[in-house]
Write a protein that binds this DNA or RNA. Sequence first.
DNA 1: CCTTAAGGTTAGGCATAACTAACTTAAATT
DNA 2: AATTTAAGTTAGTTATGCCTAACCTTAAGG
Lengths: 199, 199
Amino acid sequence: MVTDNIEKLSTKEKIIKVGAEIIVKEGLRKFTAKNIADKLGITDAAIFKHFKSMDDIILEIIQRYVSRCSQSAIEAVERGKTIKEKLELLLKAHIDVLEETRGAVPVLCFELSRSEDAKFKTILNNFVENYTQEISKIIKDGQVEGSIKKELIPEDVAMFFIGSIQAKVFAYVISGREGKIIEDPDQFIEMIFYGIMNR
Amino acid sequence: MVTDNIEKLSTKEKIIKVGAEIIVKEGLRKFTAKNIADKLGITDAAIFKHFKSMDDIILEIIQRYVSRCSQSAIEAVERGKTIKEKLELLLKAHIDVLEETRGAVPVLCFELSRSEDAKFKTILNNFVENYTQEISKIIKDGQVEGSIKKELIPEDVAMFFIGSIQAKVFAYVISGREGKIIEDPDQFIEMIFYGIMNR
DNA sequence: CCTTAAGGTTAGGCATAACTAACTTAAATT
DNA sequence: AATTTAAGTTAGTTATGCCTAACCTTAAGG
């Protein structure tokens, strides 16, 4: 779905791709018809031949990226045999979508979940809620099984997961780096699982 | 500096307080003269009796909140006897400033470090850089000492700290919750230090 | 070959935001 | 008491952003 060669894509696809990129790299304030159009070498009016409104573009981005994120997480969980493997697969799936979408999902969540617009707010808050519920369930099972620390609140751990990934996007974005957002997923997961210190 | 009773403050202080609150709760797009003025029961034009421009308000917010954040971190590190204590004090100091400023610093970092405006970008990127350097130094000492895992990259760990806190703000902001951002700082620090899983 | 539709263009309307100018008021200073 | 200053007001300018209307252009289909 996300192609490296932007040249080949239809204008509509280009708008979505460039739009998502602007949100990540420049912020929502720079997500304007003119900014997108300039980057594609067309006029702002042409944007509206493809989308009814600017909000429609955002909705499309959210729907594509966010729904894929939930979907692949659920699949990952089904495939995992042990609790640890389930969490590992879930995190890896999450990281994969993250890399493919160049960090758009966390940025959108952060920037739009506080939006005045109930439309975005609802979709994104539901997404985050379902996602945390999904993780919480596994955490609870892990606590019963004894592999996960009993004193932790499952919902907190779920948010810790999401947040840790978001933090990586933050680091990536402010560094202005190119390339992968999470360089070493295994070490990243290790840090979340067992912390930074030796006992 | 941050007073609970907003009534007593001068208009200039109110503008800063309300402005920071808007950035956290509603996002940068809603950070407008009219929005601030409405909340203070004055007109938008009155804002410019106190600040030369809207950017000036943001600069003032950044300077106050961000500089305090670095300052109290450095002090905390000086007071700590062991590596573990240094990190603990640093995280606690960070959390204190975070609570006082209602999450403004991480949100500003996230929203403005990608800003078009070099003014904000430079200040915030320098802040993040100094801060990670400060933490990295301690992490390196801890690795020499043997208390911190040798395989971790110090800069990554530093970003993991900042990110974990940012994650809490994220959770706080999208939940729309009131009250403290980090309910149980000790458990939070424990999670960062030793992870979520039993060995 | 003519028609149609997709996807562009220019021009412009409308709303909103930043900021300014000129005026008012009321408190503080001289 | 007179003057000055701080801090507000209204009204307006300029710029920008979303979006529409009316007009081109080109390629495909009948």
